[in-house]
Simulated assay, not measured.
Amino acid sequence: MSTFDALFFHFFQYYKSKKSKKTNSIATFYLTLLQSSLLLLLGVFFAGFFKQMHVQTMSSVKAWTLFGLVVIFLYFKNWIQYSGKKRKVLNAKVLKNRKLHYNIWLLWLLPVVILGLTYVLYQAT
């Protein structure tokens, strides 16, 4: 089980008692937000690196379009992966092995910190 699976199931377990009908949507949204913010951080890093190396790879419009398409792909991948039988099997494994102990506020703060770091890196380039 990957780190993203563990984070998904932590959100799933936390919100299951509070918002039972929207639990899967909230967990999928969080996972997509986290993955897309990490992808944005990587993209800004490599854009700055290529700019320093004077390598012209693609225009910024094409890069933002590619980022948008990848985010849409990530959302649908997560939606398909965590809405079916695989989610039930992995959820049973998580519940059987251990209870996850993460602070939910720190997990919600993680994408915000990553986006802040991305902004700082973007300003540095």
Rank of each mutant, 00 (worst) to 15 (best):
K88I: 01
V89G: 03
V89S: 12
V89W: 06
V89M: 11
L90V: 10
L90W: 05
L90D: 08
N91I: 00
N91Y: 08
N91E: 15
A92T: 09
A92R: 13
K93N: 09
K93L: 11
K93R: 11
K93P: 00
K93H: 07
V94M: 07
L95S: 10
L95M: 09
N97V: 14
N97M: 04
R98W: 07
R98T: 14
K99R: 12
L100Y: 07
L100V: 11
L100F: 08
H101L: 04
H101R: 13
Y102P: 01
Y102N: 03
N103E: 10
N103W: 08
N103K: 10
I104F: 03
L106V: 08
L106E: 08
L106Q: 09
L106W: 15
L106Y: 13
L107P: 01
L107S: 02
L107C: 03
W108L: 12
L109H: 05
L109V: 06
L110S: 07
L110I: 01
P111E: 07
V112K: 06
V112C: 06
V112E: 07
V113C: 10
V113H: 04
V113Y: 06
I114L: 09
G116K: 02
G116W: 09
L117G: 10
L117A: 14
T118S: 13
Y119F: 13
Y119D: 00
Y119Q: 09
V120G: 02
L121H: 05
L121R: 05
L121S: 11
